[in-house]
């Protein structure tokens, strides 16, 4: 069954899958890295991103760039309300944050069911064409996801490494008390980090639901993927999230294509379990 055409197609599929996985994991790992919050409401914020895009692009037909950026900004802004009333009470309380945000997740999901119904919906694709490059078949919507993932990763890297806020975030993530003595307003930094994390989560949710389908329950899978990716890459590590997403995307694509879905699931989760045994802090993470 092996052929170069199939290898090439598996590579293309793997890269597009990796892009989605990296985007999903970024916001999740950022919150943990800086505030030590395990965001179990990650999937619900992603779901809100999907609905925001559904209305902005699918219903009100705003230009795509405006719709997708505007949707993520809207959800991130609304996220600050949740941050104020719920999330901030769980900063640096890892286990409490899991339970508290699981509750927030359920409240958000079932509010979604009441408001939007449980039916699955489809968001029109930004590009519905299928590109043929030699023997390769490339859906254009996956190219859009890949482009967005590259741009977001680059901008995020620039923000973290080249701006004062980025520097302050890194300082706060290493030691919040010492950062405070240097004049860094930790509360403000946490708000900025939360805003950025939810912006990226909502953006990932918009793209994910556009490629697949949208329902109030879409976040379950998103949360699971985010968890696997950050465990692979290392909790709290941004390069780890990128590496974990790429590893998971490529391994799923190649293993499923050449050995079947059952082998892919077995090997992928087997590798995660093995990693948790020999290196629990992940490939690029740091031991606590």
């Amino acid at each position: 069954m092996f052929s170069m055409a199939m290898f090439g197609q598996a590579l293309v599929n793997g890269v597009s899958l990796s892009a989605i996985y990296v985007l999903i994991a970024l916001g999740f790992t950022l919150l943990f890295g800086i505030m030590r919050v395990v965001n179990f409401a990650h999937g619900a914020f992603a779901m809100l991103g999907g609905y925001a895009l559904f209305f902005a692009y699918g219903q009100y037909q705003l230009p795509y760039a405006v719709a997708i950026i505007g949707s993520a900004l809207l959800v991130a802004s609304a996220g600050l309300i949740f941050e104020y009333f719920v999330v901030r009470w769980f900063y640096h309380k890892m286990f409490q944050s899991m339970i508290g945000l699981m509750g927030l997740n359920m409240a958000m999901v079932f509010t979604g069911v009441i408001v939007w119904d449980a039916h699955e919906r489809s968001i029109p694709a930004a590009a519905s064409e299928v590109l043929f490059v030699g023997d390769l078949v490339i859906p254009a919507d996956r190219v859009v996801v890949l482009a967005v993932a590259i741009v977001v990763l680059f901008l995020f890297w620039m923000f973290i490494s080249k701006t004062k806020y980025g520097l302050a975030m890194r300082a706060a993530s290493q030691d919040v008390e010492i950062a405070g003595t240097q004049g860094i307003n930790a509360r403000r930094i946490y708000q900025v980090a939360f805003f950025i994390a939810i912006f990226m989560t909502a953006l990932a949710g918009s793209l994910y639901t556009q490629v697949y389908a949208l329902s109030p329950f879409v976040g379950e899978r998103i949360l699971m993927v985010a968890f696997v990716v950050v465990i692979l890459g290392g909790m709290g590590s941004i390069p780890g999230a990128a590496l974990g997403g790429i590893l998971l995307g490529l391994s799923e694509s190649f293993l499923s294509t050449f050995f079947g879905a059952a082998v892919s699931t077995f090997v992928t989760f087997g590798a995660v379990i093995l990693l948790l045994v020999v290196r629990p802090w992940g490939i690029l993470g740091e031991p606590e």
């Binding site: 069954m1 052929s3 199939m6 197609q9 598996a10 599929n13 899958l17 697949y212 389908a213 379950e220 899978r221 799923e252 694509s253 190649f254 293993l255 499923s256 294509t257 050449f258 079947g260 879905a261 059952a262 892919s264 699931t265």
Partner: peptide, 20 residues
């Protein structure tokens, strides 16, 4: 025939096997 884990959203790799 091929089976997948319920909850999956990405079927492209299995579909590629099928097309082959």
């Amino acid at each position: 025939s091929e089976l997948y884990e319920r909850g999956s959203k990405e079927f492209t790799p299995i579909l590629l096997r099928m097309i082959a």
